[in-house]
Amino acid sequence: MQQSQRRSLEFVLDNLVWFMLLAVLAIFSAAVPSYFQPGIFANIIEQSSVLGVMSIGLALVIIAGHMDLSVESVAALSAMATGILFASSGIGMGITFTPGWLVVPASLLIGIVVGGLIGALNGYLVVKVKMNAFIVTLSSFIWVRGLVVATSGGRSAQNLADEVRFLAIQRFLGIPLTAYIAILCFVGFSFMMAKTRLGRHLLMIGGNEAAAFRAGIKVDKVLMIAFILSGAIAALAGWLLAIRTSGATANLGAGMLFNAFAAVVIGGVSLKGGLGALPGVYAGVLLLSSINTAINLMGLPAHYTQVIHGLLVLAAVLLDTLKQTIRKQLA
């Protein structure tokens, strides 16, 4: 195969998800009545914010060659912490500040610290104790969710202060501020992955951990940072979710893990590690939201969403395998 052909094929493989997104949007716009309008697209972006942020953390850990199944539960715990402390009805304690806007940094900080701590525990068990990341984070996925149910007693907290709700209500160009926070996160972490030493080291550890270690990269430290970041970012996602729903319930965000997982894989991140970039992950999230929106518009019963998501995860892993086969033939 010629060099130029290989280049273009590789370009398509690297950015496959964007082509898929465009194709899916085009098909739905043509086939589903009232799909093609600015409000729908704004809605897709809005829906993508929480899942998108959660996917960033998951992607960082998978790119480094590991796994973090705890992101969904960590997000729920962060949301519940925000709900219990700052919501005014239900089990909420309704803590307020003067001036009132201080609730924004306070709730965010508490959430991120909680998420970072769980991430640090995951990282410690994986990196220092040398336990399998899948098992460690599966355990966290279960016990953190248990903690959410236990602290809330299965009940919910409602009515967050207007100063926080502002972020979900106030719109700029038809899109709420929370969605801009998600986009900012994607821009920031994409920059980190592409332009800084930390990002480069994460990528290389995912590619060949032994080589990175031999070259003097502090593999343990970098992996630890990845797990802490994943926890903290998941907490940020939970905080956004609490703001969006103005509170928290014990089963908030249940099932999001698999959507995040699907988005990351569809977005071009290889489960083998060392491959993938965050812009693609955002496209993966947008793709999922586009499909959800189409299902809603077509009036299919909501149960089918789960069936379709399940098939999407399968399709995503299949796609990953297929891409690896094609790449091998290219090499």
Binding site: K195, T196, R197, R200, H201, L203, M204, G206, G207, N208, A210, A211, A212, R214, A215, G216, I217, G274, L275
Partner: peptide, 28 residues
């Protein structure tokens, strides 16, 4: 001892990457 998932330059400077400061952030 190479990371095959990154380019030649990245491998050459593995663990010893050069950076420059851009608005206080160290950029490759």
């Amino acid at each position: 001892s190479l990371c095959t998932n990154v380019d030649v330059v990245a491998n050459f400077f593995m663990g010893r990457e050069l950076t420059r400061s851009m608005m206080g952030i160290k950029v490759l």
